[in-house]
Design a protein around this nucleic acid. Structure first.
Lengths: 190, 190
DNA sequence: TCAACTTCTTGATGCGCATCAAGAGTTTTG
DNA sequence: CAAAACTCTTGATGCGCATCAAGAAGTTGA
């Protein structure tokens, strides 16, 4: 969510983070473990203390597509977390051995209702989430693989130290071979 | 939004519709007129009484991509309508001469705050919008043009009577020539 | 520590789709 | 009502990218 942070008050994210760190359950997950799998109905969100995750979805041809990467300092969830009856439409899988703090959204709501008298969760965060999805939708619909490559690199400058080419290729929408050739030909000359 | 209707209580949509019909401004728009243009900061939403609209966005190569179609009985807006400071990321353009009822989101908020004591707008609708964007994002990322073609046809069975091939082709992500050939070869045999 | 596996690159091949082009049919408009 | 503009189809051509393949380098694990 870091690229969306500007759209919510910084203090709200800090508050959520503090809450989850203080009252959430500390969980170690190993590389390739799933935090959420397609079809799950969990309402858990988690703060990534250390590590990295990917959002994925299996296409009808059986191939996996990567939709997002998340790193330490960011949150992962079964979107839309507040619609707690909703089945997950994506997998959330660890790219590295990671440490996360897990917290159910229902408890989060309770916390804010007790503290402020009404849920600030929904207005503050759901719109951020919606706006993030809108941007991602537009990016898939309107951006070229190169544009997606540079956007990703801008958001996560050290992406190549954290994520292998195959996963980056899936994220930008080409095969690993094509990304390899893109890099050796023109991408690194810019 | 009709394909998302199931996720909000029907009565909420009815209430919004009644409110907009009763207190909104009736506006006739001509084919090709814009309701919203990229960069606009308007917080207007509108109920389509009669007609049809398309959401579009211009790609960096200058070509137009169509992201959604909306018909009578549905709403159009500068998403996210409740973030009223936000610049529109898409154009909303009339496909036919249409009649709409326009209503600013700010007045909508006032209405609900007066009536219920707090805004039900945000929790009820923002999540619906977010979920819609999520689905569209996943469709662009994971579905083939054929799959998008059939999804559209399922949502809007009479789409070919309302929208020309060029626009449908843009929506599913191919050129008009390719869609034409898809139809004559295998699509209509299924 | 060695075998098995993964990652990345590079090459060869072929298909799918964009592009360019042309023409028939339809709609719009002055 | 005629000219202009748009819509859809069909054909020809070529490029881009997926696919298949193979090999080098790095990583993992019994």
């Amino acid at each position: 969510m870091s690229d969306l942070e500007i759209y919510a008050r910084k203090s709200d994210w800090d508050e959520l983070k503090q809450l989850v760190l203080r009252h959430g359950e500390r969980v170690c997950v190993r590389k390739n473990d799933y935090f959420v799998q397609c079809g799950d109905a969990s309402d858990r969100i988690a703060y990534i203390k250390r590590g990295a995750f990917k959002y994925t979805r299996t296409r009808t041809d059986g191939k996996e597509r990567i939709l997002s990467f998340m790193f330490e300092g960011e949150f992962i969830a079964n979107y839309i977390p507040s619609r707690n009856e909703s089945m997950a439409l994506m997998n959330v899988q660890a790219l590295e051995d990671s440490v996360i703090y897990v917290f159910p959204v229902s408890r989060y709501r309770q916390f804010f209702e007790k503290k402020i008298g009404r849920s600030v969760y929904v207005p503050q965060f759901t719109e951020v989430i919606a706006f993030g999805f809108l941007q991602k939708m537009l990016s898939w619909a309107c951006d070229t693989p190169e544009e997606r490559y540079f956007s990703l690199k801008e958001r996560v400058p050290d992406i190549f130290n954290r994520v292998n080419l195959k996963d980056i290729a899936s994220y930008i929408g080409v095969t690993p071979e094509t990304l390899s050739r893109m890099r050796t030909s023109y991408l690194n000359k810019i």
